[in-house]
Measured scan of single mutants.
Amino acid sequence: MTSCHIAEEHIQKVAIFGGTHGNELTGVFLVKHWLENGAEIQRTGLEVKPFITNPRAVKKCTRYIDCDLNRIFDLENLGKKMSEDLPYEVRRAQEINHLFGPKDSEDSYDIIFDLHNTTSNMGCTLILEDSRNNFLIQMFHYIKTSLAPLPCYVYLIEHPSLKYATTRSIAKYPVGIEVGPQPQGVLRADILDQMRKMIKHALDFIHHFNEGKEFPPCAIEVYKIIEKVDYPRDENGEIAAIIHPNLQDQDWKPLHPGDPMFLTLDGKTIPLGGDCTVYPVFVNEAAYYEKKEAFAKTTKLTLNAKSIRCCLH
């Protein structure tokens, strides 16, 4: 018999989150649709729960009410004593943790798909938090293969000092899905179709896995975050240069030392320094102006996964 890495157990509980950011409308629209008619997301033997994560922000069509829901799922915020004085999103995070967690427990949901849009030209993107997770690498390989020839990129946010504390991190297997470009507060049919297909293929993978299909060893190309880059700023902290036209919409493309990065209003080009080629992502993302992030630098690498098969009882 072929030796293989056996994944822990079959997958039982899956959640699909929309509206973690209330103005990213593809996930909101799909989740609302699936709450009314969820036939397309159901798979035999699998509990799939669509869920609106930040209903107040969705109602106002804004990213958040008090603070970013997708950055506060750490033990400090989840452990705060519940009171009306807490920011709305912290209270909501505790409610979500109660419903789908608790985080880092045996009772937490197996998989959470968190649906997002970006204003950046990132196409279909899967966000991975753990480079050693054979199950998710296999799932992402399946999704990428199923979507081809449509490109699907994998963004690895594993980093020693950049801690995200994402909404989906309460699950055993957290999956971020990011599709763009799409303006905030807008629905685009092409973007919706791409996100819908990503979810379909992900659920198909889980179904095949649960039925005992063995997935042979595989490898995927990923883009691992190195650092986030702020806009150049003046002495008052105001933005002093904008994304250069040569960099705009060039997510995932190589940016070499000396290539144009920013452009000042008086026409001066600010190039990339250093001696390493990087791959920019979230270029000129609207939501990241407040976070002082013009783009993120990534490096390209390959992740390998062992063969996996479900432990059938």
Rank of each mutant, 00 (worst) to 15 (best):
S3E: 15
C4P: 15
H5N: 14
A7R: 11
A7C: 09
E8Y: 15
E8K: 14
H10L: 13
K13Y: 01
K13N: 10
A15Y: 02
F17V: 08
G18D: 02
G19I: 04
G19E: 02
T20Q: 04
H21R: 09
H21M: 06
H21W: 04
H21T: 04
H21S: 10
G22R: 09
E24M: 02
G27R: 01
V28Q: 15
V28N: 13
V31L: 06
K32Y: 01
W34N: 04
W34C: 03
E36A: 11
G38I: 11
G38T: 11
E40T: 04
I41C: 05
I41V: 10
Q42G: 09
Q42E: 13
Q42I: 07
T44M: 09
G45N: 10
G45K: 07
V48P: 06
I52W: 03
T53G: 13
T53H: 01
T53Y: 02
N54I: 01
P55F: 08
P55I: 09
R56K: 14
A57R: 05
V58K: 02
K59Q: 13
K59N: 12
C61V: 13
C61G: 14
R63F: 02
Y64H: 10
D66H: 11
C67E: 12
L69I: 12
N70D: 15
N70L: 08
R71W: 09
I72T: 13
D74T: 13
L75Y: 13
E76T: 12
G79I: 11
G79C: 14
K80Q: 14
K80G: 13
K81P: 15
K81S: 13
M82Y: 13
E84V: 14
D85V: 12
L86T: 13
L86I: 12
L86G: 12
P87L: 10
P87H: 10
E89M: 01
E89I: 02
V90D: 07
V90L: 13
R91L: 14
R92L: 11
R92C: 12
E95W: 09
I96H: 06
I96V: 11
N97C: 11
N97A: 11
F100I: 07
F100C: 06
G101F: 06
P102N: 09
K103E: 08
K103C: 10
K103H: 12
D104K: 14
S105C: 12
S108K: 13
D110C: 00
D110W: 04
D110Q: 08
F113W: 01
D114N: 02
L115T: 02
N117T: 15
N117Y: 05
T118D: 02
T119Q: 00
T119A: 08
T119M: 06
T119G: 05
N121W: 04
N121M: 01
M122S: 15
M122H: 06
G123Y: 01
L126M: 08
I127P: 01
I127W: 10
L128G: 06
L128P: 03
E129F: 02
D130P: 05
R132V: 06
N133T: 00
L136Q: 01
L136Y: 03
L136S: 01
L136K: 04
M139R: 05
M139K: 04
H141Y: 08
L150N: 11
L150Y: 09
P151N: 08
C152T: 08
V154N: 04
V154I: 11
Y155K: 11
L156Q: 05
I157Q: 15
E158H: 02
H159Q: 14
P160V: 08
S161K: 13
L162M: 14
K163P: 13
K163A: 12
K163M: 09
Y164R: 15
A165E: 14
T166P: 12
T166V: 08
T166N: 14
T167L: 10
R168G: 10
I170C: 11
A171P: 02
A171N: 04
K172F: 02
K172W: 03
P174I: 11
G176E: 06
I177T: 02
E178N: 15
V179H: 03
G180E: 00
P181F: 06
Q182C: 15
P183A: 12
Q184Y: 13
Q184G: 12
G185L: 00
G185H: 01
V186H: 05
V186R: 03
L187R: 04
R196V: 05
M198S: 08
M198F: 04
H201F: 11
A202R: 04
D204C: 02
F205N: 01
F205I: 00
I206Y: 00
I206A: 06
I206W: 06
H208Q: 15
F209M: 00
N210F: 00
G212F: 00
K213Q: 13
K213Y: 13
K213V: 15
E214M: 10
P216K: 08
P217E: 12
P217I: 01
C218E: 04
C218M: 01
C218Q: 00
E221G: 01
V222L: 01
V222D: 05
P232E: 00
D234R: 08
E235S: 11
N236T: 10
G237V: 03
A240Q: 11
A241N: 03
H244F: 04
P245Y: 00
P245K: 00
N246R: 12
L247F: 02
Q248W: 01
D249Q: 02
Q250T: 07
D251H: 01
W252M: 08
K253L: 08
K253C: 08
P254F: 00
P254Y: 03
L255Y: 01
H256S: 11
G258K: 08
D259M: 08
F262S: 03
L263Q: 10
L263T: 07
L263H: 03
T264S: 09
T264I: 04
L265V: 10
L265F: 15
D266G: 08
K268A: 09
T269L: 07
T269M: 09
L272F: 15
G273M: 10
G274Q: 00
G274H: 01
C276P: 00
C276W: 07
V278R: 02
V278L: 02
V278A: 02
P280L: 04
V281L: 09
F282G: 15
F282W: 11
F282E: 12
V283M: 05
A287Q: 13
K291Q: 11
K292D: 08
A294M: 03
A294D: 05
A294Q: 05
F295C: 01
A296D: 07
K297F: 11
K297D: 03
T298R: 04
T298M: 06
T299V: 15
L303K: 05
L303C: 06
N304I: 09
N304G: 08
K306S: 13
I308P: 04
R309W: 06
C310N: 13
C310M: 13
C311P: 14
L312T: 15
L312G: 15
L312F: 15
H313Q: 08
H313P: 15
